[in-house]
């Protein structure tokens, strides 16, 4: 179980921790956001391994964000771990319910049905004035099992939490994908008829995958809410969901590390593109996507694994 990938992830965790603690505050914050969103992308990886793409992951992400924000503002909950539990509960419960419908669909219908649900949530949030409508609202400062860090230490604490959770989640998903149940995704992508005639409900397997992806997105949402200190309906908007798909394709599905790597690259690119050429950001992203699709259809990760294989020969 503790295989090369797990050691690799552990090494990556150490590198990220080292980099994050010496980095400037803004860079550390960027890393937190990238890792949090990387978890949403990891959820997409789970779906994409089963041949499914969702244009509505903002739904689960937004549920995580708002669950964290609302638990603080309405219930006075500030403990980050409790918020995480609530965020996961919110997103997976909704995924469990909607999953009965979503798991019947494949391909573009699946992608757009997810998007439709995310648009409904967006519409509801925008119309709900107690939740600040389009402005959203501020999230309370988190505490950590009774520890209330000073303002100066808050950033480091949130960063540490995010990095460690990313590591744990990546290992868990790595194990899941290596299990028979995880691998059923590949089987469904390749031949659903054969899956059914092996006695397995492809729909049920997809339902479970949906809930896993929702849980991951929920975690990403809670961490984002905590880190940013603010939530707004934009987090559930289809452009946010589109960005997750973008990063997922950029990253590739070759490894559970790929979404995090892709997400970090994406956030860095975006920051610099905004700074140096504020009006050409979309163009740059379009060009990057074009190059990846043409030259690295397996995503950035495939370039890494390809060069590693090359060395081995």
């Amino acid at each position: 179980m503790i295989d090369r990938t797990v050691w690799g992830l552990f090494a990556a965790l150490l590198v990220v921790l080292g980099a994050g603690f010496i980095a400037a505050d803004w860079a550390q914050f960027l890393l937190v956001l990238a890792l949090a969103k990387g978890m949403v992308v990891l959820g997409l990886l789970v779906l994409m391994r089963a041949g499914l793409v969702s244009f509505g992951q903002g739904l689960w992400y937004g549920l995580g964000c708002y669950a964290a924000g609302m638990a603080g503002n309405f219930l006075g909950v500030t403990d980050a771990f409790l918020l995480l539990a609530l965020g996961i509960a919110a997103s997976t419960t909704v995924a469990f319910i909607l999953g009965f419908l979503l798991s019947r669909y494949r391909e573009i219908f699946f992608a757009l049905l997810n998007m439709a649900f995310s648009m409904i949530l967006f519409g509801v949030l925008v119309k709900t004035s107690v939740l600040g409508s389009t402005d959203g609202f501020n999230v309370l400062t988190p505490t950590f099992l009774g520890y209330a860090p000073s303002e100066a230490a808050l950033g480091d604490t949130v960063f540490l939490l995010t990095a460690v959770i990313s590591f744990v989640v990546a290992v868990l998903i790595h194990w899941y994908l290596g299990s028979t149940m995880g691998f059923i995704g590949e089987a469904i992508r390749e031949n659903e008829l054969r899956v059914e005639y092996l006695g397995v409900s492809a729909r049920r397997a997809v339902h479970i995958k949906l809930m896993i992806a929702a849980a991951l997105s929920g975690i990403g949402g809670v961490l984002t809410a905590i880190a940013v200190g603010h939530v707004d309906p934009e987090m559930t908007y289809w452009t946010t969901s589109g960005e997750f798909v973008f990063v997922a394709i950029l990253s590739g599905t070759g490894s559970v590390a790929a979404p995090f790597m892709g997400s970090i690259i994406f956030e860095v690119l975006r920051t610099y593109a905004y700074e140096y050429s504020p009006y050409t950001w979309q163009m740059l992203m379009g060009a990057v996507m074009l190059l990846v699709i043409i030259f690295l259809p397996g995503g950035l990760w495939s370039a890494l694994s390809r060069s590693r294989k090359g060395e081995g020969k």
């Binding site: 899941y176 299990s179 028979t180 149940m181 995880g182 691998f183 059923i184 590949e186 089987a187 390749e190 031949n191 008829l193 054969r194 899956v195 005639y197 092996l198 006695g199 397995v200 409900s201 049920r204 397997a205 479970i208």
Partner: peptide
């Protein structure tokens, strides 16, 4: 009806793995 993009061995591994209850296949 086979899984075309994976090897013969993996095809059989999937068949063997899923013989049983779906929730248990996670372990």
């Amino acid at each position: 009806q086979v899984f075309p993009d994976i090897t013969v061995l993996d095809n059989v591994l999937v068949a063997l793995g899923v013989a049983g209850d779906l929730p248990r296949t996670i372990f």
